[in-house]
Design a protein around this nucleic acid. Structure first.
Length: 428
RNA sequence: GGAGAGCUGGCUGAGUGGUUGAAAGCGCUUCCCUGCUAAGGAAGUAUACGGGGUUAACCUGUAUCGAGGGUUCGAAUCCCUCGCUCUCCGCCA
């Protein structure tokens, strides 16, 4: 969440900044809540002070053996007035907190203006698009004879699920292992294994809750309700590793990576990307997370974009880097770069990675801090990015590396994970 | 799932109803002493939030002893619920 003091100092200014990302801040509601909060909090604390003083007095008088009846009556009266106020205050504070939890992050000044993805800015295009001398198939058709089976996925679980068998399943695994190895060995991230079910607190910490519950899968425990959710991204467990903690400044930045499944209900995307595995309820992703000093989080952001790009260029996939405009960014991001990979069958670039600096937005929700040089506890900056989405990488490889006979060239860097095989051949 | 033990500041660990935000020790910071080393002395040392303030140093208040609720004039201390940790048993990959 954003710093409440920004709102106290200049609600209108903040509202104007948020408007540019398409969020309407109810400034009047906030000002009213704040005004009554202030009034009630001051009065409550006054009464508490009076009560504490008189209660102490009772103790002292009793020690002397004096009669304390009148004092006790006085404190009793104070207490009953206090009780009502305390309830009112905590309700107000909860309301203010709920209000804050629904406000998106303020975009960094460098983020371009704009409302939709059409307003995003292409930063650079890399790699060479292959010129095919035959009619290209999409990954569904390419994969059909190689072990990519959507009918089986549907039979087991419904739409937006897939089963992979044989060579495709192995290639899928190879991709994820390769990515993880690069992130760990070349980019210096610490490999993590985390829970894939997380509690509401964690999801509030990274910003998926309370606003986006409909995007998540929630679990039951036997027949009982449970408050555990399937993670929609590895960002949730990895970032929350530092929740409610105070880190040592000299250990920054912390760099975490993990291969995790991701589960998304895709509630708002009916009819979108229904064919193929671009948009699935379940997919794998190698996630990068960095917990950084606030002073250099933007250098870290650039570095993380490079880390994601490195994977794509090693796989020899054509891609471009896009700077998201204010209206297209995610809830918690102050600045985001997307990496988009070339999909020949669609004749367009599709998102395969998203790298964001959330600044202190998540850290404030999570109470993730470090001791700065003045020994003050200061909020960290959190950054996350895909490095990369495994399923979409598979799609990109199948499409970009397809051959006229229906086989697929395996990228050189993956051969070692494929027992030296160079081509994914059709079974005889 | 059953039985038991526990959860106090950066750490160890006192505290079973009253000037206790919390003894003592360790650690840490600053200073003093000591011509090395070792040792010694003094002071300080939680977090969050509110109010005031030349919005900075500072002053002041409130809350916090796993979490939430209750009893009470007053709760770290008594009662209830929940969470977590440890030990034993059961089940399980």
């Amino acid at each position: 969440m954003i710093d409440i003091n920004l709102l106290r100092d200049d609600v209108i200014g903040v509202a104007n900044l948020l408007k540019k990302r398409g969020f309407d801040l109810d400034t009047e509601a906030f000002s009213e809540l704040e005004a009554s909060r202030k009034k009630i909090q001051v009065r409550t604390q006054e009464l508490q002070e009076i009560r504490n003083e008189n209660s102490k007095k009772i103790g002292m008088e009793k020690a002397k053996g004096s009669n304390t009846d009148s004092l006790m009556k006085l404190v009793s009266e104070t207490s009953s007035e206090l009780k009502a106020l305390e309830v009112e205050l905590s309700e107000l504070q909860e309301k203010i907190n709920d209000f804050l939890l629904l406000i998106p992050n303020i975009p960094h000044p460098s983020v371009p203006d704009g409302i939709t993805d059409e307003d995003n800015i292409v930063v650079r295009e890399c790699g060479t698009k292959k010129i095919f001398d035959f009619k290209v198939s999409d990954h569904v058709d390419v994969g059909k004879f190689l072990g990519l089976d959507f009918d089986l996925g549907t039979k087991l679980s419904g739409s937006r699920f897939v089963v992979m068998r044989g060579g495709i399943a192995k290639l899928h695994r190879a991709i994820s292992q390769f990515m993880l190895d690069i992130q760990v060995n070349e980019h210096g991230y610490e490999e993590c294994y985390t829970p894939f079910l997380v509690n509401t607190e964690s999801l509030i910490g990274t910003g998926q809750l309370p606003k986006f519950a409909e995007d998540l899968f929630v679990t039951k425990r036997g027949n009982d309700e449970s408050d555990l959710y399937l993670i929609p991204t590895g960002e949730v467990p990895l970032t929350n590793l530092v929740s409610n903690s105070i880190q040592e400044e000299q250990h920054l930045p912390l760099k975490f990576t993990a291969l995790t499944p991701c589960f998304r209900s895709e509630a708002g995307s009916y009819g979108k990307d229904t064919r193929g595995m671009i948009r699935q309820h379940q997919f794998e992703k190698v996630e990068m997370v960095q917990i950084s000093h606030p002073d250099n989080s933007y250098e870290v952001l650039d570095e993380m974009v490079k880390h994601a790009e490195n994977i794509l260029s090693k796989l020899n996939l054509p891609y471009r880097v896009v700077e998201l405009c204010k209206g297209d960014m995610g809830f918690g991001a102050a600045k985001t770069y997307d990496l988009e990979v070339w999909i020949p069958s669609q004749n367009m670039y599709r998102e395969i990675s998203s790298v964001s600096n959330c600044e202190s937005f998540q850290a404030r929700r999570m109470k993730a801090r470090f001791k700065d040089s003045d020994k003050k506890n200061t909020l960290l900056h959190t950054l996350n990015g895909s490095g990369l989405a495994v399923g979409r990488t598979l799609v990109a490889i199948l499409e970009n590396n397809q051959r006229e006979d229906g086989s697929v060239t395996i990228p050189k860097v993956l051969s070692v994970y494929m027992d030296g095989e160079k081509i994914l051949k059709l079974p005889k």
